[in-house]
Design a protein around this nucleic acid. Structure first.
Lengths: 187, 187
DNA sequence: ACCTGAACACCGTTCAAGT
DNA sequence: ACCTGAACACCGTTCAAGT
């Protein structure tokens, strides 16, 4: 005898994302997600294969939000200003969403689905690739982008880990970084 | 009636470190560590306050090893070659010890004890600070070091997370990065 | 003094049973 | 078709009891 569904994949992913933002990845347990959507843990397995699959769905959600966030920071005019604005937006987003940042940048083992964007220039981080390309020229886009993204994610990761413990102005260090990087990747 | 100790903090930390290297941080459970040192889980609480304390001891061990590893890579001669050698040693170590790298660079919440080295120039990453200082001059050492370390840790973190999925030569991207950074921090 | 089994409150996951 | 309680094998941690 059929029964109306009492929840949905969307509701589950949203609940998981909310818990991630509030209390971190370890707090995203099947039981807590289930109770947030008004159901018991075993019922979740009707919608997601297992916890890993749920975490991957949440990661895709996070990546889309991050992409939109850095995309909005770009004006598409001067690439140097643009790149700095993108970096600042990235950092601000990460500091506001430490759990989500940690998930996407350092807790995704092995492969996770979000296939690499077919065309990087229009994909999730298109704004960043376009700004970098304008500075580095077409031959070095990939390597220059990797330099910038590695630095930005490493910087924020260390900041969130509390690894900057030798004093100094962290905001200034970030500004110094983007300034030097713009010079470094320019032709 | 006294009883001879059957294990020690050292044995416990070493066992934890071995499990970390073999199977990652999540596998470092009190039960597994206990069984590795030939004891039951509750006995571990005679030596370490709780699992977090054990993880912090392991992290300190990891940091010392990493410091020795990058220290050995430096010759103290030309700072550019030195910095590249240090970066290469860091990356090689991280790729060989992904669990240890992840623990130290992205899984340490809040504070963890290893107090900041009193004198950075002679501390854990002294070789790196000295090479950077020779290139950047004394005024920019801190910010320049943060640029280099953020980049290196972010790069390796992304590499381990499988985040370089757009093709290209990853080794070449790392070499490109250190080359551009040396230029970027030089006066 | 050190170690232990038993217990408690949690996990993720499966599955037969209910509607 | 969907949801559930009960069960299983795991966690971390505490504690009274053993030696």
């Amino acid at each position: 005898m059929p029964t109306p569904a009492r929840t949905s994949v969307d509701a589950i992913v949203n609940a998981g994302r909310a818990i991630l933002d509030a209390d971190g990845l370890d707090a995203v347990s099947m039981q807590r997600v289930a109770s947030a959507v008004g159901v018991r843990a075993p019922s979740l397995y009707k919608r997601v294969r297992d916890r890993d699959a749920l975490v991957r769905l949440i990661a895709a959600d996070v990546l889309a939000e991050l992409g939109a966030c850095v995309g909005a920071a770009s004006t598409g005019e001067d690439p140097s200003t643009d790149l700095a604005a993108i970096a600042d937006a990235f950092r601000a987003w990460a500091l506001q969403h430490p759990g989500a940042f940690g998930l996407v940048f350092s807790r995704l083992p092995d492969a996770w689905q979000p296939a690499p964007d077919a065309d990087p220039m229009t994909g999730t981080f298109g704004a960043l690739f376009r700004a970098v390309a304008a500075l580095s020229g077409p031959d070095d886009v990939l390597e220059a982008s990797r330099l910038v993204v590695a630095w930005a994610s490493g910087f924020v990761g260390m900041e969130l880990a509390g690894a900057f413990r030798m004093g100094g102005d962290v905001d200034a260090a970030f500004a110094y970084g983007i300034d030097r990087l713009v010079g470094a990747i320019a032709r």
